[in-house]
Design a protein around this nucleic acid. Structure first.
Lengths: 336, 336
DNA sequence: TGCTACTGATGGAAGGTTCCACCAAGTCTA
DNA sequence: TAGACTTGGTGGAACCTTCCATCAGTAGCA
């Protein structure tokens, strides 16, 4: 270690300065820092991780792109995750998730390539989570998991988000809100739909039946191919004057269907999206959407990962972050 | 190394088996492989890179998400890059590109964290490329650079892609094709526009003035905010019956503007996108688009990176891949 | 003074690979 | 059969850190 020689100190002292370990006097610290600056010295990652068993790396299992612009929000999350990790001096190894990711996971763990994993799009009894748990590798999930207890996750309050949106459109004067989401496959499909019903119930009692009973009801989409047609007939038969949706992507399709039916967005039909993806702001009129705070989520995920790495398990398992409503022109108020 | 002991061979032999170096007899090789399998042994990445000066990692500088769904294609590229790299046993460290990425670059290089860099969205005289070149770190660019000579890049034939698209719409019977792109900022903005003119010239001579002279002309967009309005007035004043665009994203805006003007896509106005992003296939009618082969690009990028790492510079600097036209319903033929 | 406790700093060991020089045994050649 | 070459294989050094035991010096205290 030539920095040590140049600074006239022992190599351990340099190491201690760099890692904040041990005791170092002010004079020595200064001298070491100066020579480091001067020589542009950077510790060798490999040697460091070999000895310290820390890589300062996270692995992110990146879900494959489906044929859905939905994933734009996942890209925003990725970006936020990378930035948050960088802020804590972690690098992120992004791993494309194969059909069966277990081999990749096992390799990365045995490899000692990373200190922790980040998972997203959790499924009930997620096999990736099970495997990581078995291997004793720390990991944090974006999205809940139903494993009771130990696992660390960060999620948003899907139900409250939609309920807020219901309150918003009611407040704007719409009277027959409906909900369009997916056939519940994931946790949040169900959660958002439940949020709609809850929001409806809340306003119905609070404002003495501001809405007529169940509103315009709920549409559950089976797949993307038939989505547009289903939405059209829902708009015709249920006659909602406002539509809450399970994602910005669905909102986009609603825009298309409304255009075909000659409905003016905002006036004849309010539309609220979910995600707050940047793409949705390009719609005209601009889409009101329930925004999930990807930056906050990412920060918390990284912080929790760091805690797991440094102190091991022990924190409260889950954590729920609030959403907020970004108002566009798609919910300005019904036609007089 | 307990594998060596378990297999009853020297540790060098295990290393040789693993890396295909040195000479190993068939019997010993079998024995080693068996014990490795049995013990589930994986070499420690840190130790490996410490000694061999190879990390089997690439760094990808990820450009920040602008407010553009354009970037969906960059997400597809990212996915393709990760997959291609994994195929060659490389992991990818994705680094969010800061306003000034030079510190991050320097750190990663001094760190010995990666073997090579991958850059995208190259600019003329790109400072990142300059820096990496100076530091002696191998790197491959997706997109051309104007540094003469040494740099490795992979790109598509933008001009030919648009020219093909011109030929396609002419072949379908449209007679006044126009082009909508951006004010040329990058290499490919200019290239695609040039491809339009070239395509026009080619069909004009080949089919004895199938088109009327310059077609409907060219519109250059300054920014996204005013894009929709500019496009509307272009459609009204220039009266094209077909529009080639510089990106799928512009095509989406054209769809919107056409709807406002009561133009039926495909019949009254043909539209061709550029990128072949998956999102564009969700448009209705489905968008015809010049597809850039992201998987091929990514494979070539990774292969070239590997060559640079293993053999150093020496290969021909650049490499151009062809595009192809994915036909949708946006160019079926003009109204009779 | 003699003992403990603390501070600041040190050199050597260890961590798990790959690389290198070398070796034993067998094969070929003159 | 001596010498050269080939094949299959070996152990030790090196890679660059961090960790640990230890030490010299100083201060505190009875």
């Amino acid at each position: 270690m030539d920095v040590a020689r140049a600074a006239g100190v022992g190599k351990s002292t340099v190491s201690n300065v760099l890692n904040g370990t041990g005791r170092v006097g002010e004079a020595a610290r200064r001298r070491v820092l100066d020579t480091i600056e001067q020589l542009g010295y950077q510790p060798h990652q490999g040697a460091r991780s070999l000895r310290s068993r820390r890589t300062m790396r996270l692995a992110y299992l990146m879900p494959p792109i489906q044929l859905e612009p939905t994933n734009l929000i996942m890209m925003q999350f990725l970006q936020a995750l990378l930035t948050a990790a960088a802020g804590q001096h972690y690098g992120v190894l992004v791993v494309p998730e194969a059909a069966d990711p277990s081999d990749d996971i096992r390799r990365l763990v045995a490899d000692r390539s990373v200190d922790a994993f980040v998972l997203s799009e959790l499924q009930p009894a997620d096999p990736r989570a099970e495997l990581l748990h078995r291997l004793g590798m720390p990991f944090v999930c974006f999205g809940r998991t139903d494993r009771r207890g130990r696992l660390a996750w960060v999620d948003i309050d899907d139900a409250a988000g939609v309920a807020d949106a219901v309150a918003h459109v009611i407040g704007r004067g719409y009277r027959r809100p409906g909900y369009i989401g997916y056939e519940p496959r994931t946790y949040w499909d169900a959660e958002r739909e439940a949020g709609f019903r809850a929001g409806l119930a809340a306003t119905a009692t609070a404002t003495a039946r501001a809405t007529d009973g169940d509103g315009a009801g709920v549409l559950r989409l089976a797949d993307d191919a038939t989505a547009r047609a289903s939405i059209r007939s829902f708009l015709v038969s249920a006659r909602p004057d406002a539509v809450l949706t399970g994602s910005d992507k669905i909102a986009v399709i609603v825009y298309g269907a409304a255009a075909e039916l000659g409905l003016r967005i905002g006036r004849d039909l309010a539309v609220v999206g979910f995600d707050g993806s940047v793409g949705a702001t390009l719609l005209s009129p601009r889409l009101t959407s329930v925004v999930m705070p990807v930056e906050d989520i990412a920060s918390r995920v990284v912080e929790r990962a760091q805690l797991l790495i440094e102190r091991g398990p022990g924190d409260p398992p889950g954590e729920i972050l609030p959403t907020w409503l970004r108002e566009g022109q798609s919910t300005t108020g019904p036609a007089a």
